[in-house]
Simulated assay, not measured.
Amino acid sequence: MADQPAYPIIDSHIHLFPSSELDTLAWNKPEGPLYKQHSLAEYASATGGPKNLEGFIFLETDRKHDLETGLKDGSGWEMPLMEVEWLKRIALGTPKEGEGHSEDDKKLCLAIVPWAPLPSGAEGMQRYVKEAAKHAGEAFKKVKGFRYLVQDKPKGVMLQDGFIEGLKWMGQKGFVFDLGIDQHNGGKWQLEEAYEMIEKAHEGVSEDNKVTVVINHLCKPDLSVYNQNDPAFVAWRTAMFKLSKCSKTFMKLSGCFSEMPASLKQAPVLEIFAALQPYLVVILATFGSFRIMFGSDWPVCTIGVDDAWKKWRQVVEKFCYLASLSEEDQIMIWSGTAIKAYGIKELM
């Protein structure tokens, strides 16, 4: 493969957390591989500090929360709001000692996507976002959207009246919704429900006020499936065509290592690309380069993978090269789509 031009890169999906707040993460256990600080010092080491890395978009890390007490007295929002304050210190360049970032790192923080209580409806969202703005201070201008992770929730959550109402409120206020679903572990119903959710959220809403939806990680298909006639692949492909027909909907080229068998994670880049090719072809055919964005899912991507960030970058480079994408198409995938979807005005 010929050397690829060094286009500007925006990593559209990373997670950060200091060692002092590990126990606020709902999923991170002391015996787990990520139970240690993952801040910008560690991120810089993982990426190798490429000169063309313009910055990143932070995604909430599923901190412990309680919807009911959050609405009642705000105590159920304590840990997600603690995360907002953590990102404030990064975005404004005011670190506490030992948190692994410096004042200079603030320029890398291009957008913040915190947690939000979407099932609480418009009223709950309004109250929470008001609190988040207080905790973020000047950094709130970098809050471009919110995520309420639905991949581990039961059927029907995405279709509840409050959830749809919350999405419509976000659209009116210009906030993006990051959608995290999981076909591999959750089942194909999540794909079907996600499409219905977007349809309901956009129903009766003007184009300008429709919520923008950024779909995470290709919806997490089972990447041990290589047979394109397999029912799981057919269901995923069908869903990609349906989801791509929804307006103001984007896809992150991210999170794939987590859905690969262990042997593929350790394989050479070309072998990984070959295994992913059927999936990448579908994503390009459905969403097109102007609605696809590069993301690493760091540090989750590092579990069982050596040099994961660099390896994923090489996979995406091979994808761009072997698909014979134009310079304009490649610029969109590496950074342009993220700028467009999240409205990052500083780089427009």
Rank of each mutant, 00 (worst) to 15 (best):
K130Q: 14
R127T: 10
F175Q: 05
G171W: 00
A132L: 10
D152F: 02
D182Q: 02
G171S: 07
A132M: 14
E196I: 03
E199F: 14
F146H: 05
H184T: 10
P114S: 08
H135Y: 14
M158L: 11
G156I: 03
G180T: 12
M197T: 01
A111T: 01
H202E: 07
K130G: 15
I181A: 01
K134L: 04
Q172N: 11
Q126Y: 10
A194N: 10
V113Q: 07
L118C: 05
Q126W: 07
F163I: 03
Y195T: 04
E123K: 09
V113G: 07
W169Y: 12
G180Q: 09
K144F: 10
M170Q: 03
L167W: 11
Q172E: 10
Q183N: 15
A132S: 13
F146G: 04
L167K: 03
V211R: 00
G171Y: 03
V176A: 05
Y148P: 11
L191P: 01
E165W: 01
L191A: 01
K130W: 12
G145P: 06
H135Q: 14
I164F: 00
G124H: 00
A116N: 05
G124Y: 05
D208A: 06
H135V: 06
K168P: 04
E203F: 15
L118V: 14
L149W: 03
Y195L: 13
K168S: 08
V129H: 12
V176S: 02
M197A: 11
P114D: 12
K130Y: 15
A116T: 05
D161Q: 08
A133E: 13
E192H: 02
Y148I: 13
A132E: 15
N209D: 15
L191Y: 01
V143T: 08
G204M: 12
N185L: 14
